[in-house]
Computed example of a mutant assay.
Amino acid sequence: MATMTVSLPDPMKDWIEAQIKQGGYASASDYVRDLVRRDRARREQEFTLEELRQKLATSRESGVSDRTVDDIFAEAREIAKAHGLMHE
Protein backbone atom coordinates (compact mmCIF):
# COMPACT_ATOMS: atom_id res chain seq x y z
CA MET A 1 0.00 0.00 0.00
CA ALA A 2 1.33 3.46 -0.87
CA THR A 3 1.81 6.29 1.60
CA MET A 4 0.63 9.85 0.99
CA THR A 5 1.15 12.93 3.11
CA VAL A 6 -1.74 15.41 3.15
CA SER A 7 -1.88 18.85 4.77
CA LEU A 8 -5.22 19.90 6.25
CA PRO A 9 -6.48 22.98 8.06
CA ASP A 10 -6.89 22.40 11.80
CA PRO A 11 -10.73 22.30 11.67
CA MET A 12 -10.62 19.47 9.12
CA LYS A 13 -8.04 17.55 11.16
CA ASP A 14 -10.21 18.01 14.25
CA TRP A 15 -13.25 16.74 12.34
CA ILE A 16 -11.45 13.57 11.24
CA GLU A 17 -10.17 12.94 14.76
CA ALA A 18 -13.71 13.37 16.11
CA GLN A 19 -15.02 10.79 13.61
CA ILE A 20 -12.36 8.35 14.79
CA LYS A 21 -13.20 8.96 18.46
CA GLN A 22 -16.90 8.32 17.75
CA GLY A 23 -15.89 4.88 16.53
CA GLY A 24 -16.83 5.34 12.90
CA TYR A 25 -13.27 4.84 11.68
CA ALA A 26 -10.16 3.08 12.91
CA SER A 27 -7.75 5.77 11.71
CA ALA A 28 -7.39 8.89 9.60
CA SER A 29 -6.32 6.65 6.70
CA ASP A 30 -9.51 4.62 7.09
CA TYR A 31 -11.55 7.83 6.97
CA VAL A 32 -9.79 9.12 3.84
CA ARG A 33 -10.15 5.75 2.08
CA ASP A 34 -13.90 5.85 2.80
CA LEU A 35 -14.12 9.38 1.37
CA VAL A 36 -12.35 8.28 -1.81
CA ARG A 37 -14.64 5.24 -2.22
CA ARG A 38 -17.74 7.40 -1.76
CA ASP A 39 -16.47 10.01 -4.20
CA ARG A 40 -15.77 7.36 -6.82
CA ALA A 41 -19.25 5.87 -6.39
CA ARG A 42 -20.85 9.32 -6.64
CA ARG A 43 -18.93 10.11 -9.82
CA GLU A 44 -19.94 6.79 -11.37
CA GLN A 45 -23.59 7.64 -10.65
CA GLU A 46 -23.14 11.05 -12.27
CA PHE A 47 -21.82 9.30 -15.37
CA THR A 48 -24.92 7.12 -15.39
CA LEU A 49 -27.18 10.17 -15.10
CA GLU A 50 -25.40 11.76 -18.04
CA GLU A 51 -25.96 8.58 -20.07
CA LEU A 52 -29.65 8.70 -19.22
CA ARG A 53 -29.86 12.37 -20.21
CA GLN A 54 -28.25 11.55 -23.56
CA LYS A 55 -30.68 8.69 -24.15
CA LEU A 56 -33.60 10.98 -23.32
CA ALA A 57 -32.38 13.62 -25.77
CA THR A 58 -31.89 10.97 -28.46
CA SER A 59 -35.36 9.54 -27.84
CA ARG A 60 -36.98 12.95 -28.13
CA GLU A 61 -35.26 13.52 -31.45
CA SER A 62 -36.23 10.10 -32.84
CA GLY A 63 -39.99 10.51 -32.49
CA VAL A 64 -42.47 7.78 -31.57
CA SER A 65 -40.97 4.32 -31.06
CA ASP A 66 -42.35 0.97 -32.12
CA ARG A 67 -40.70 -0.62 -29.04
CA THR A 68 -42.91 -1.80 -26.20
CA VAL A 69 -42.64 -0.41 -22.68
CA ASP A 70 -41.40 -3.85 -21.58
CA ASP A 71 -38.58 -3.67 -24.15
CA ILE A 72 -37.57 -0.24 -22.94
CA PHE A 73 -37.55 -1.30 -19.27
CA ALA A 74 -35.55 -4.43 -20.14
CA GLU A 75 -32.88 -2.26 -21.76
CA ALA A 76 -32.88 0.08 -18.75
CA ARG A 77 -32.37 -2.91 -16.42
CA GLU A 78 -29.43 -4.13 -18.52
CA ILE A 79 -27.81 -0.68 -18.39
CA ALA A 80 -28.30 -0.55 -14.60
CA LYS A 81 -26.79 -4.03 -14.22
CA ALA A 82 -23.81 -3.07 -16.40
CA HIS A 83 -23.09 -0.16 -14.08
CA GLY A 84 -23.50 -2.23 -10.92
CA LEU A 85 -26.63 -0.35 -9.89
CA MET A 86 -28.86 -3.40 -10.00
CA HIS A 87 -28.31 -7.08 -9.22
CA GLU A 88 -29.65 -9.92 -11.30
Score class of each variant (00 low, 15 high):
R42C: 08
L56F: 15
K13Q: 13
L35A: 04
Y31G: 03
L56C: 15
G84I: 00
E78I: 06
M1N: 12
S7D: 12
L8G: 01
R40H: 02
W15T: 02
K13E: 14
L8D: 05
G24K: 04
G23R: 00
R37G: 02
D14N: 12
G24E: 00
A76G: 10
R40M: 03
R77H: 10
W15E: 10
R33E: 10
D70V: 03
Q54C: 02
Q22G: 08
D70N: 12
P9R: 10
A82E: 15
T58C: 11
L56H: 15
T68W: 07
I72P: 12
A80C: 07
Q45N: 10
Q22K: 11
K13A: 14
I16K: 02
L8R: 02
A74V: 08
V64P: 11
R53N: 05
A80S: 03
S29G: 14
E78V: 07
Q19L: 04
Y25V: 08
R67V: 09
K13F: 13
L8I: 01
F47I: 01
E17V: 01
I72R: 09
R40K: 03
A26H: 06
S62C: 13
R43T: 05
T5M: 12
Q22F: 03
R42K: 12
Q45A: 12
E61K: 15
T58A: 15
P11K: 02
I16Y: 04
K55Y: 04
T58P: 01
A2M: 14
A82F: 15
D71K: 02
K21W: 02
L56M: 15
H87R: 13
S27W: 06
E75H: 12
Y25E: 04
D10M: 04
F73I: 07
A26I: 07
R77F: 05
V69T: 09
S65V: 03
T3G: 06
T48G: 06
E46C: 04
L56Q: 15
I20G: 00
L8M: 07
T68G: 13
F47P: 00
E78L: 09
G24P: 00
P9K: 11
I20M: 01
A76F: 08
R33A: 06
T48V: 10
S62K: 15
T48P: 00
H83I: 00
K55F: 01
E50A: 14
Q22S: 12
T48N: 04
A28W: 01
I20C: 01
D70W: 04
T68V: 06
A74Y: 11
S65N: 04
A76I: 08
R53W: 07
E50N: 12
